[in-house]
Structure formats: C-alpha cells, structure tokens
C-alpha cells in the first residue's frame, strides 16, 4: 500500500571557521591597459559558482560589464591566501575582499580621473567603464585612464583583506561573544510516498525557503538548494559506506548508491532576501545549509506517512519494513 506523508525541518548553520580562528581572505583588483580587469584570488571554485560570484561583485562595484572581468591567481605562487572554499565562507569572505579591493580601485579611478578632468569627485560620472565630467564632455575609458596613471608611475590596482573577528569559546562551557560571523537559516517541507510492501520511499515535492540575505546569483543559489537537497536525500535514504572491522565492503558505486536522476523530487523554492547580512551587498553563505534539512524532513515525513520513527540513517527500505513489522 502507498502512504503519503509530509515532514518539515528548519535548520541553522553558523558559517566561516569561527571560534576565534584567524579567518580571512585577501584579494586584489587591477585595471590593465589591455581592457581587462583582473581579480586576483586563490579561492577555489568547486562548481558552485565562486568565480562567477566574484566576477559579479567586481563588475557591480566597478560599473562595467562582467565580460571584462577575469579571475586570475588560482596558484599559490600567483595569489595570496583566500582561505578555503569550505565552511560556506567564500561569498562572504572573498566576496567582501573583492568588493573592498574593487572599491579601492574605484577610489583611484575618481582620484586620477579628477586630476585628468581638473574637477572634483562629485562632478565625475563613472559608467560602463568610462568616466566623464558632463554628458557632452570628453569621455575616457578605464583603459585610457590606466595608461595615464601608468605614465605617472602608478597603477589602478588595489589589494584588500577581509578579516572579521570571532572569539574562541570558553573551553569548559563553550560560551563566547561571537563564535561565528553569521548564521544562515532554512526551512523545508517535504512530501513523500512510502510503499508499505517494499519499504521504498519516493520523494515527491520539496518546498524550500532559504534566508540568503541577498542572492548574488539567484540561479546559482537555486542550484545549491537542489544539489544540496538531493545530496541530503542520499544521506537520508541510501548512502552508507559500510566499514566492518576497518574494511570498507562497498567501495564502489554499485554498492555505495547516490541519488540518480530517477530519485529527484519537484522543487519549489523561495529566497528570503532582506539584504541584512554582513556579506557583500547584504548576502550570506548558502553552500552547506542546503544539505542539512533533507534527512530530518524525510524522517519526519516517514513518521507522518506510516507512524514509525527511524532514528538511524540511512532510512532504508529494510529499516522501514522492520519498523512496520515491530509496530504491528
């Protein structure tokens, strides 16, 4: 018999290393004569879109089409430390470092631009990679300005470090003033169907509301929700590296199963954007939070469907059938 159930989970995630660890990111932005804006960061793009996010932030601050931005420095000998791509920290940390470096460069654009135009900053307009003192007046491009600045022996280049403080918690009580830089919150509701004859679970719908501060790239945030949730469903329903007496007995992808395209639910998601966090443009990190709700939401839906509570993961058909048997 097929039984339907609905479960909910709300979660939080404190991101960044926190706990007083010296967590920071260094970035550099440079406008070159050859019509490129180089953003130098050692941050790793694991697929989530780090390079794109940094590109958008630099483009926004420097008021220029993203196609001019080039991310460089994916090399220990070509860029300074950006910290890890982990702890859901890159948008917040490297994003802020890139934003600050880009703002520094913007300051230089105004500074040298005002010398060139013989005017003061408020009279200058900067738009689409050009600056000018009035609508009809002469315009110069960033690249021309870079050339002029170079002739003065200077550069349109700046480095910035984003280094917010956290505090180590007390060793005995875990208490502290600021343990993590910020928290991300999410609520998910999940609809499932349990086949009481086979113990198989089908996940029908996942409804998600994610508190992101601001989405720098909404499509990529949805990509995190979907990817994270499906990975979380793997944990909830199937994934289990079985290590017996120190020996893994399922070290391949036939016996260690992860979700396939046949296992995915429908998604409906909302991003809560209050622009109220400390990341660039009010954003906060979302990478890890998106995996966290799936296993409890599924477990709670199983209870709703068939009245059994499974307290160990993964919730396999075998566990479902055993629990149903016990309940009888």
């Amino acid at each position: 018999m097929k039984k339907q159930g609905r479960g909910m989970a709300s979660i939080m995630f404190g991101f960044g290393y926190g706990e007083g660890f010296p967590d920071h990111s260094i970035a550099e932005v440079e406008i070159t004569k050859d019509k490129r804006i180089k953003v130098r960061t050692a941050g790793a793009d694991l697929g989530q879109g780090f390079l794109t996010t940094m590109t958008q932030i630099a483009a926004e601050v420097l008021k220029i089409d993203p196609s001019y931005i080039e991310i460089v420095g994916q090399d220990t000998h070509k860029a300074k430390n950006s910290g890890s791509t982990s702890a859901t920290r890159q948008t917040f940390f490297s994003g802020n470092a890139v934003r600050e470096a880009a703002e520094e460069v913007m300051g230089k654009i105004y500074h040298y631009g005002s010398l060139y135009f013989n005017s003061n900053h408020p009279e200058l307009t900067v738009k689409d990679g050009e600056l000018y003192a009035c609508d009809e007046c002469e315009k110069i491009t960033y690249w021309e300005l870079a050339e002029i600045v170079e002739q003065r022996g200077k550069e349109l280049k700046a480095e910035a470090t984003f280094f917010p403080k956290t505090y180590a918690p007390d060793r005995k009580t875990g208490q502290g003033e600021k343990i993590y830089v910020a928290y991300t919150f999410m609520t998910q509701v999940m609809d499932i169907e349990v086949d009481t004859d086979t113990g198989l679970i089908e996940v029908m719908n996942v409804y998600t509301a994610l508190d992101v501060g601001r989405a720098i790239n909404p499509q990529n945030v949805h990509g995190q929700i979907e990817g994270g949730t499906v990975q979380g469903l793997g944990m909830a329903m199937m994934e289990d590296q079985v290590i017996e007496e120190g020996i893994t007995i399922n070290a391949d992808m036939t016996n260690y199963l992860v979700p396939s395209i046949q296992d995915i639910p429908n998604f409906e998601s909302t991003l809560i954007e209050n622009n109220d966090s400390g990341g660039p443009f009010g954003s906060k990190g979302v990478g890890e939070p998106t995996i966290i709700g799936a296993s409890p939401a599924l477990s709670n839906a199983v209870y709703d469907a068939i009245g059994v509570r499974i307290k160990s993961l993964p919730i396999t058909p075998e566990k479902i059938l055993n629990a149903l048997e016990e309940k009888k």
């Binding site: 949805h222 990509g223 929700i225 979907e226 990817g227 949730t229 499906v230 979700p259 395209i261 046949q262």
Partner: peptide, 16 residues
C-alpha cells in the same frame, strides 16, 4: 529521466 538514468551527477541535483 530514463535517458539520463545512467549518468550520475553529484552537484546539481539534476533539476537544471
């Protein structure tokens, strides 16, 4: 879904 059932993606959750 049937046509792509042999291709595992660990990142995207397949929706996109």
């Amino acid at each position: 879904k049937r046509g792509l059932s042999g291709n595992i993606c660990r990142c995207t959750g397949y929706v996109k």
